[in-house]
Write a protein that binds this DNA or RNA. Sequence first.
DNA 1: AATCCATTCAACCGCCTGGGT
DNA 2: GACCCAGGCGGTTGAATGGAT
Length: 344
Amino acid sequence: MVRTPCCRAEGLKKGAWTQEEDLKLIAYVQRHGEGGWRTLPDKAGLKRCGKSCRLRWANYLRPDIKRGEFSQEEEDSIINLHAIHGNKWSAIARRLPGRTDNEIKNHWNTHIKKRLVKIGIDPLTHKSLLDGASKSSDHPETPQPEKNSAHQEEDDQNSDSKMSPRSSSARFLNRVANRFGQRINHSVLSNIIGNGGPSTSHTTTTTTTTTSASVHYECERSTSSSSTPSFSNLLINQNITVDTTSLSSSTFSDSSDTLMYDGIFSDIEDMTQFSSRFLSDAHDDEEFLMLDESCLENTSFMREFTMILQEDKIETTSFSGSHVTPVNEVDEYDSFEGIDNYFG
DNA sequence: AATCCATTCAACCGCCTGGGT
DNA sequence: GACCCAGGCGGTTGAATGGAT
């Protein structure tokens, strides 16, 4: 079947937009809103393809566009999100308010990708390019293959001031276990850490229907999601995340708590960083672990659980050893001591 | 100053998807 | 189910720019 062109090719202008065209487009969208892109050019008096108008608006003229250099935090988020989503630029852009998919894509291709390659990380797989090569201890200048993730870069750059998302995940688990270890029933924590128990069921069905707060883990793209998560691979390969939608006000049956939770999340200034570490799209093909219903109904638990998320975010962004609950780090990855305390 | 080359990024292209009929 | 349409997406292009020679 012959594809119908999105617009008539004759007489349409291409190339860089002029200020006059921008003003026309802005005026039209402000008056009529977004949408109807195919007919917009005629109505707005633009000799442009509707697609071109939409792109110009979405990538450049939209009032909430954030322009300028990417911050270190934004770059970290992009790397983390790319490890999860791959080249799904729009998905990544949704987590970076004010940044467009096109901008992120360009920045990735022109800056981040090169930097990752330079330090020995495959930007496609986020694994070391030196897999299988001899240990770099013989060659101190070559990257260490043990930390075969994109986070090596930030570790290298911020080893004293930042914690990697991986350690954040483990630390988060520690805190949950330490704080709630005496109150959450065993099966719930078994679910969270996937300790091989029967309750590592991936209750995808209930996620979309009855879910409230779902702790959900995402496997690295290179790993099979079908395997039952073990304690170790949870720490190494997975980030604990909380589904955003699950923490909406509708989550909580106690109406008096609704506003509180809304407040907490609206108070989080940097949703980008928060979401890059804890939040994820609720795709149908992703698997979820559910917190026990009883936990969700326990507003006290949910209150503290939410506070942990918030505190964790704050501590990670301005980490100093003095004010962070100590977490033993047995090796280069965090250990999950809290769960041991609980089960011990 | 002139030329060449590399880099950046706005814009385009073609494909895909979902909704409506 | 088939078809059409609108919108969205990722990959690619090419003009503009800056640095090196």
